[in-house]
Every structure is written in structure tokens, then in C-alpha cells.
């Protein structure tokens, strides 16, 4: 899933993005694999747990970078992060209460995939453009 052109020019953020794409890819694999749902659940659960924590770390780091470089779109970007964090939290809460329904998890995986591609492929690239306009690498 990860593409080299997603790099924005910050080593930390680029490696976190790479990790996120890899994790989402393995999440999709676990969700889409053949075989009994019960047998794939461990992997699904583990990835969801990881994602819940990792997006918090990554969003914080990315917002810290934006503050550091004086990125003008910080406030709007942080609001987008907050909305997505909330979406993941709500989904995690829902599966805790209602259990892991295969179809619901498939739908959620698709939502996370499309969100990540659009967010990193568009919004985050604007941070990269800003870094380059300021004269280079962090």
C-alpha cells in the first residue's frame, strides 16, 4: 500500500506513515483472508489495538512537527485528526460492546484504508510542500 511518493521530507513522519500503511495492509489481509472468522479474530483484534494507540502517537508527532515549522494549516489539520481518532475510538467501543462482526470489521477496514490514502496522499502532502517551500528537509 505504501508508495515512495507519499514521503513529505520528515524522517520521523515518513517512517510512521510507512508503518501505518503496513499495518493497515496487514489488517486488510487478516480481514479478507479465507478461513474461519474466529481464527482471524486474534490478528484483527491485535491490529485494532495497535492502530488505536499508534494513531494517537503519530497524530501528536505530526502536529508537533507542524507547530515546529509554523505550518499554517495546523488547526484545520488537527481537527481532521481529532475526527478520525474519534471514529476509531467509537468503532473500538462498538466492537467491545457488540463483538467483532465480520461485515462491520470489513466495512471499517475499507473506511480506514480510504481515509489513510486520501489523508496522506493529499492533506499531508501539503505539509511536504510547505517544508520544501521553506527550503528543505526537517
Amino acid at each position: 500500500m505504501w508508495k515512495e511518493h507519499y514521503r513529505i521530507g520528515s524522517e520521523l513522519i515518513d517512517s510512521q506513515h510507512h508503518e501505518l500503511f503496513d499495518r493497515v495492509a496487514s489488517f486488510i489481509r487478516a480481514v479478507q483472508e479465507e478461513g474461519a472468522w474466529e481464527e482471524r479474530l486474534d490478528q484483527v483484534q491485535a491490529t485494532l489495538e495497535f492502530m488505536k494507540e499508534y494513531v494517537v502517537i503519530h497524530f501528536n508527532d505530526e502536529e508537533a512537527l507542524q507547530r515546529e515549522i509554523g505550518y499554517p494549516g495546523l488547526e484545520k489539520h488537527a481537527a481532521v485528526h481529532a475526527a478520525f481518532r474519534e471514529e476509531i475510538r467509537q468503532f473500538a467501543q462498538r466492537v467491545e460492546e457488540e463483538g467483532f462482526d465480520e461485515e462491520k470489521v470489513q466495512e471499517f477496514a475499507a473506511r480506514v484504508m480510504t481515509w489513510l490514502i486520501m489523508h496522506v496522499g493529499r492533506e499531508d502532502q501539503r505539509i511536504g510542500e510547505f517544508i520544501r517551500s521553506q527550503g528543505g528537509q526537517q
Binding site: R29, Q106, M113
Partner: peptide, 23 residues
């Protein structure tokens, strides 16, 4: 998008299409 082969219009594929149309 997923970087892996999809072979049927299941909940994952349909949801991804819905998201693309939504975006």
C-alpha cells in the same frame, strides 16, 4: 488501493467503493 487482489464484491470492496463515491 489495498495492494492485494480482490475477487468478489464483498462488504470490504463495497464499503471501499462507497467511500470513494463519498469522497
Amino acid at each position: 488501493m489495498a495492494g492485494m487482489p480482490m475477487s468478489k464484491l464483498d462488504a470490504f470492496v463495497c464499503s471501499a467503493l462507497g467511500e470513494v463515491a463519498n469522497i
